[in-house]
Design a protein around this nucleic acid. Sequence first.
DNA 1: TACCAGAGGAG
DNA 2: AAATCCTCTGGTA
Length: 787
Amino acid sequence: MTKNIRCLLDADYISEGEKAVIRLFYKTPEGREIVRVEDFKPYFYAVPKINSEECIENLIKEIEDLITKNVGYFPKIRDISVVERIYFGKKIKVLKIVVTHPKDVPKLRNDIAELENCKEVMEADIPFAHRYIIDSGLVPMENSELIKLKIAAFDIEVYNPRGEPQAEKDPVLMISYSDTENLRKVFSTKGAFLDLDFLEIASNEAEMFKRFVELVKEREIDILVSYNGDNFDLPYLKERGKKLGVKITLGYDASEVKLERRGMNLGAKIRGRPHIDLFPITRQLFNLPRYKLEDVYLELFGEEKIDIKSSDLPKMWDSENPRDLKLLFLYSMSDATSTLKIALALLPLQYELSKLIRLPLYECSRAASGQRVEHLLISEAFKRGILVPNKPSDEEVERRQMETYTGAYVVEPIKGIHDNIVLFDFRSLYPSIIISHNIDPSTIDCECCKAVAERTPTGHHFCKQRRGFIPEVLEKLIERRMEIKKLMKLEKDEKKRRMLDVEQQALKILANSTYGYFGFPRARWYSKECAETIAALGRKYIHKTIEKAKEYGFEVIYGDTDSVYLTRKDSKTKDEILSHAKKFLEDINKELPGAMELEFEGFYPRGIFITKKRYALIDEYGMLTVKGLETRRRDWAKIAKETQNKVLDAILKEKDVEKAVSIVKDVIRRIKSGEVSLEELAIHTQITRDIRSYVQEGPHIAAAKKAMKRGYEFPKGSIVTYIITKKSGSISDKAELIDFVKEGDYDPDYYINNQVLPAVLRILEALGYSEDELKGRGKQLTLDSFS
DNA sequence: TACCAGAGGAG
DNA sequence: AAATCCTCTGGTA
């Protein structure tokens, strides 16, 4: 039996006269297919002020009046019907108002919302094509693993003699292209004499643009990927194209690239041929010091990729030496090939998320956590006849931002070194609390269970009769995830196992964002009370774990939110402590509600605890885990981080303070000698707001502002990489963007006293040496001794 | 020296 | 456009 397999890549709607036609862009085994849907109409709901027949009747009359009074309204409203829906947990009758065209919705919903008998209008803000996907049960990206999708990556190089290029003046020099059918190209306007098989020379810049667009069409590319194409490559091509008289018609329907506002940033939308920008995806997925293409490539594949300083680019383009130009082409080519390689590694998770939350790939890949949870809930609400709450108004958002609540509990650690440590943590603490306590805006403080349900620590109770919507959705996610994990264990085929793993990851991401969603001020299903109760119950369970661990003879070294690090004085070996741990675990799990479980997470022969959220452990195999310390922070120089790491290793593996000290001494010698490379000294700090709005300017802002005078731009979110140089004045005065610093021009005192020493002394002090003691203890541990 | 703004991590 | 808890630095008065 042949199944009609196809994969929904994108959906939109177009207007044809008064009609709105949905277009579904499919990839099929044979090629592409566009399905047009003409009979689906936009609709929204009107909720009557009072839940009564009479009020509904009056509301209908009011709407009919509206139609008679406003000549244009008749064809716009096609149908009004009374339907039953669930409104904040209760079944009520509401009006479903069907209209002709999505553009009619904004005015109609406002007019109807203002009627005497109308409480509110709902679901009038669900985008039309997305509405269709939900209502018809379509699953975007379904079968993505069964149909070979053609993917192409591209990248542009732009002439930038004054720093940031300006489309008005600065030409695009190269467009590089690499696809999954093994075609690689760099389009450019010069370099014909070079022996490079991927190079295609165009007679001029406009021709180059046309050739690129043609190639994408010829090759029938399904997904176009870029690295920062949303905010650089595509806006630049578009603007430059406007000047050159070339339209960037990359759409499957030959439509132009459309730039959309997405919060602070842009999104470059290509109809029917999703454009995926890997930059926001990698920022979401990895925590790195910087997010240049080269950094991400290194992180993913452990290989260096050729890089060229943007300030060298115009020189190389203008260079007399053909080798410079050739290198530039090789660099440009590698940008596209590495972008493609990264895409192949990261897209599967995007496909899974898109399937799971039923949002087309383009939108889904740009959705933040809250947005993802919300889209999943919207489609699950439809299946159950639950009305989707409206987005909060700006005033409501502000009000919500004002209200705070108490979150997780963190145990004050017993500072210093500990041996034979066991770690326990709750498996998905918050999701399991939501599920086992039925925490939901529709079950909170219900009338029906007022007398019987026990109170949570916040004083609220949750319905025992009816399952809450969000707990139900969450439970399904978690059950599916456990099922997949079981399948993974049985699966022999590596490729299939990887697919299952990605699906499992998508489910985990969604489940873990649900608690945060309750407390998110812009959430439709916002409930501070729910968020607060979840956190309070979390504290209750971790406290209970701590108490019970003590009863069982454990010493609690540390704990945070859902985890505890324990040891015991009577256990000198791993086996001893593990047998106690087993008993403890069995007993505590008997007392916990069904969905909740404390798990054994690991055994560590030794660990050092500095402060809350800052500690390091070594496992039986010598693997070091560091949390919160400088080693883990992007805003510390590599030299300090690596030295701290080595010191931790010496101390945890060998308890050898002498060795640690000699490591530090050697690093200090290197710093003083001036031989340390800039790369090891670079500090990476993000600009988290509009650069003009800083009240206090730290070194990274000072460095950025100096660079701005030389034509650099620092939009919100950019990462400043700077060096503390030999210049005079404050630290900020000395801070310069790494691009402008020559090797060797760094302040050794700063790197010794403000980077390396604080990072390593933190560890040595936690061993029991106070700073005074260190000074009094002879040469070996004093600050002087390091110098 | 005390305080604050700012950053980035943990879970 | 997910929450809160927490530590630490550099600038400023």
